[in-house]
Design a binder for these strands. Structure first.
Lengths: 135, 135
DNA sequence: CTGCATGCAAACCGTTTGCATCCCC
DNA sequence: GGGGATGCAAACGGTTTGCATGCAG
């Protein structure tokens, strides 16, 4: 609710992890990001990547996407938007469907929960996987 | 695409796992279900619970809910519906918001994916956690 | 200097799997 | 009787954590 903690250090690792997440088109998993970052910082540890992603997500700098699939994914676009996941390759992309608050209103009306938010995840087959004759 | 495999055996374990899932109000995790089932079958293995839940989900008898949180949850209600998860205790409930196909149409229009489905997950604070002054 | 951050490796946790045995059909 | 199902325990994959050291402020 308040400003980001002031004790946030600008380490090289932090900057590069954030830069690589910004550059990534799709939404990478922690270990995909680890591979990207390691090209520039060969000795970085996986733990450092996880710790920084967690921290940046807490600060609201990035988004942690916890949807289907076994791994969490990360997103440098923090505005509210929906995602689509490929059932074949597991890739996650943004999808340009307008975010409605109507859903939240309906939810508030029909539930005893205090509604905080919502997320829509589509599943489908991405362009690339559609052209593979499936093997 | 075809009918359920005919080689589906009616074992005691299978029946009891299904019964306990039907009885559960909220949507239990595999190990919550394991604990429930173990009261009636003390020697059942966790692996058996997982194998049967997986199998029943494949057959469409139950729903596997892969949303936020670290664990998968299971649901005996197979019709299309949305869920809400408590941010405090992690419990997942059904929510009575009408399922729209409009979302799918919009997604199909604005994406190169072949859309297969969608799911909406709300997050909020459940009635029970609202009354706890948070400690 | 001081303490947050890092690298490394071990621990963790949910889930899956191999295998000998069991038992439903 | 035979092949799918079980119980048990070990393996697995993703994530977290403890600890000695490093480095930003």
């Amino acid at each position: 609710m308040s400003a980001p903690a002031s004790s946030f250090r600008l380490t090289t690792q932090r900057q590069i992890i954030f830069e690589e997440l910004l550059k990534a088109k799709s939404h990478p998993t922690a270990s995909e990001l680890y591979d990207l970052v390691r090209k520039r910082l060969p000795h970085i540890g996986l733990g450092t990547v996880y710790r920084n992603l967690e921290l940046m997500a807490e600060q609201g700098m990035i988004l942690k996407i916890e949807v289907g699939g076994t791994q969490k994914r990360f997103d440098a676009t923090t505005g509210s938007h929906y995602h689509i996941r490929c059932s074949v390759c597991g890739k996650v992309d943004d999808i340009d469907v307008p975010v409605t608050h109507e859903l939240v209103v309906q939810a508030a009306d029909s539930s005893s929960y205090l509604i905080l938010g919502h997320h829509v995840e589509f599943t489908g087959i991405c362009h690339n996987c559609q052209r593979q004759p499936l093997h």
